[in-house]
Simulated assay, not measured.
Amino acid sequence: MTDAALLARIDRLESLDQIRQLPAKYALCLDMRDMDAMANLFPEDVRVGKDASGRLAFRAWMDRTLRSPFTGTSHHIGGHVIEFDDADHAHGVVYSKNEHETPVAGGQDEWVIMQMMYVDDYVRAAGPDGPRWYFARRLPLYWYATDLNKPPVGDRKMRWPGTEPAEGNFHKLFPSYAEYWAREGDHGGPVAEPAPLEKFLETMRRGAAAPKVKVRAD
Rank of each mutant, 00 (worst) to 15 (best):
M1N: 06
T2E: 06
A4I: 11
A4W: 01
A5E: 15
A5P: 01
L7C: 06
A8L: 10
D11C: 00
D11T: 10
E14V: 15
L16P: 00
Q21R: 15
L22H: 02
A24P: 01
Y26S: 08
L28N: 02
D31C: 12
D36F: 01
A37M: 04
A39H: 00
A39E: 02
D45W: 11
D45Q: 15
V46C: 12
V48P: 03
V48Q: 05
D51Y: 12
D51F: 12
G54A: 04
G54W: 04
G54C: 04
R55A: 02
L56V: 14
L56S: 12
A57S: 06
F58A: 14
R59Y: 05
A60V: 05
W61I: 00
M62E: 00
D63N: 14
D63P: 02
T65W: 08
L66C: 08
R67G: 07
F70E: 04
G72S: 13
S74I: 13
G78M: 11
G78I: 09
E83A: 08
F84S: 01
F84M: 14
D86S: 09
D88I: 04
D88S: 10
D88L: 08
D88W: 03
H89G: 02
S96P: 00
N98R: 07
N98F: 00
E99P: 00
E99S: 10
V104Q: 12
G107M: 04
D109R: 08
V112R: 11
V112A: 07
M114S: 13
M114E: 11
Y122H: 08
D129K: 07
R132S: 07
W133F: 01
F135R: 02
A136W: 02
L139E: 13
L141F: 01
Y142H: 12
W143F: 14
W143R: 11
W143P: 00
W143G: 12
W143E: 15
L148T: 09
N149M: 08
N149A: 15
P152S: 02
G154Q: 12
G154M: 05
G154W: 08
D155L: 12
M158A: 10
M158Q: 10
R159L: 06
R159W: 06
W160E: 13
P161K: 08
G162E: 07
E164K: 12
E164A: 15
E164Y: 00
P165N: 03
N169F: 07
F170H: 05
H171A: 06
K172F: 10
S176H: 06
Y177D: 03
A182K: 12
E184Q: 11
P190K: 06
A192K: 13
P194K: 05
L201S: 04
T203A: 13
R205L: 04
R206W: 01
R206S: 11
G207V: 11
K212V: 13
V215R: 11
V215C: 06
R216V: 14
D218R: 11
